[in-house]
Design a protein around this nucleic acid. Structure first.
Lengths: 136, 136
DNA sequence: TGAATATCTGAACAGATGTTCATATATTGT
DNA sequence: ACAATATATGAACATCTGTTCAGATATTCA
């Protein structure tokens, strides 16, 4: 299961003790485990990212970032999708806390929830751009 | 299709011209469309977020951020998953440019690709924390 | 109240996703 | 070359996702 990694640390000279290599690997695994994101937090965080993992929803968020506030019909027209599909996606965005809604007459206006959303997208785009030019 | 939004701008008094309201909405939609993320870029960006939208992969990335570099077996042990599943997930992370690999003997060591990844996760966590306490 | 408008909702369907299992490939030591 | 180790791969499977479609709810206007 455990095997040699980057550091080629040799086992101790005394043959009675278990080899240091294994201890070393156990230690790294322990270190990783201690600071590990616990499953619940990992799920919560993953859920946030999942909401942004759809091109249609990203386009909705971008449209809202630009215009500020729009009703469902306009958002649908702007991104070029059906009003029903747009409504479904807006619900996910709202449940995920990425956008907020406000009723105005018979329409419902949506806006981006806070500045963290724009920041998150900016960082993601920057990472994406920097990836284009460096090789593994 | 287009309907009244936040601003309750009334139509012009002259009945021969089309109402301003519709023009207004057409303008917002145009504005949103012009700055719109084009479908290809939206797909690329969505793909990045999709890679981070799984709790298991997030835990892998966190383990690597802490330890720096680990081989597949150790990563699997740290996150508590099978080596096969971990290998599958590492491939996605690598294809997405989030981690890089380096062969060392018969094992393969993985590390986080660049500092943008940590930044992205930090921003996401901050957003997640700030969401806990504000209502819609 | 009735018609028109705007949005929401749920079921159903096709397509994508993550895991498991068996097996393949590659590397090291004997 | 052979056995052991470390990782990668592909098929199969169950589960999740996003869209469409039909219909429900809510609001405005006449």
């Amino acid at each position: 299961m455990y095997h040699a990694g980057v550091i080629e640390r040799k086992a101790s000279r005394r043959s009675e003790k278990p080899p240091d290599v294994e201890t070393f690997h156990r230690d790294r695994i322990e270190l990783a485990r201690e600071s590990m994101l616990d499953p619940d937090d990992a799920d919560q965080l993953a859920r946030r990212f999942k909401i942004l993992s759809d091109a249609g929803r990203l386009r909705i968020v971008y449209a809202l970032l630009e215009v500020g506030e729009m009703c469902v019909g306009n958002i649908a027209a702007a991104v070029g999708s059906s009003e029903s599909a747009t409504s479904h996606q807006l619900r996910q965005l709202r449940d995920g806390g990425l956008v907020r809604s406000r009723k105005a007459g018979r329409s419902v206006n949506y806006r981006v929830a806070d500045t963290h959303v724009r920041l998150l997208l900016d960082v993601a785009i920057e990472h994406y751009l920097h990836e284009h030019g460096s090789a593994s």
